[in-house]
Amino acid sequence: MESQNRLWRVLLLALPILVFSVLVIWPLLSSFYYSFTNWNGFNRDYEFLGLRNFAKIWTDRLFFNAIVNTTIWMAAALVLPTLTGLFLALLLDRQVRGARIFKTVFYLPICLSAIVVGQIWIWIYQPDWGLLNTFVKLAGNPDFNYAWLARPDSALFAVIVAWSWQQTGLSMVIYLAGLTSIPSEMLEVCEIEGATAWQRIRRVVIPLLTPSTVVVVALSMINSLKGFDILYIMTGGGPFNSSDTLAMHMYNESFKKYLMGYGSAISVVLFLIALTIIGVYFRQLRKVDEIYG
């Protein structure tokens, strides 16, 4: 049983690993290579700089700005869609009327590309006639025309909301699947023992959803680290770098300033950060496996 299981795991992993090698390992190695050069992205005559690109990172004010923004971005991307997804899943899990339709509606944004999602939210945030400001105006504030995406105070958070809106459907679906795998007897024990709805959710349902949470968090983390396109569409990292994340910064340095070598150095740092976070995370997984596995 156990060894058969293992064989399957290996087989199922073989193909992805192959694809992964071609599409990920090769570019990764190239990045490492160019991070030691001053390549501009076009010419073949670049020089080796040793560690000078990495030294430059330490003096790059915008790099640290990007670190702060990335932290905020990731923390929000981790927490918000997870909580809203969980909330919706708990709400829609019961056999209420129209639950199916709501599930579909909430899942829909996941099927849209970041470009479409970004454009929808640009319209929502549009200062003069956007949905958001129209509501504020109707609510008794006729002169309101705050430009959500053009102000350094709000730009990053405005994109975070759009991102969370899209990602919620994903965590909702994973949690819905998790809910169906909770043995009904465990919920019946709650009913017989007299648990309130809140006690049932907090003491039994949420802990039993841990395997789903593990998946949701892993996906959110990976997606948010990659989360570049929606920022690119909505703010391009601006205004005044207020929504500049590491990925955004790397892009600007590489493709706007044609500092491909330096951009590669940033990407190497980003890669190492991602590796550390994911490494720590997967170590924690073993504990979960021991309890629920």
Partner: peptide
């Protein structure tokens, strides 16, 4: 409702909570 009937039920599948210790499972109610 079940909780007001002063009864207890034991299931074939045990229905123990995997995230709780034996003591916490017993003291659940």
């Amino acid at each position: 409702p079940p909780s007001k009937r002063q009864l207890a039920m034991v299931f074939q599948s045990y229905a123990l909570f995997p995230h709780l210790t034996v003591a916490e499972n017993i003291g659940f109610g």
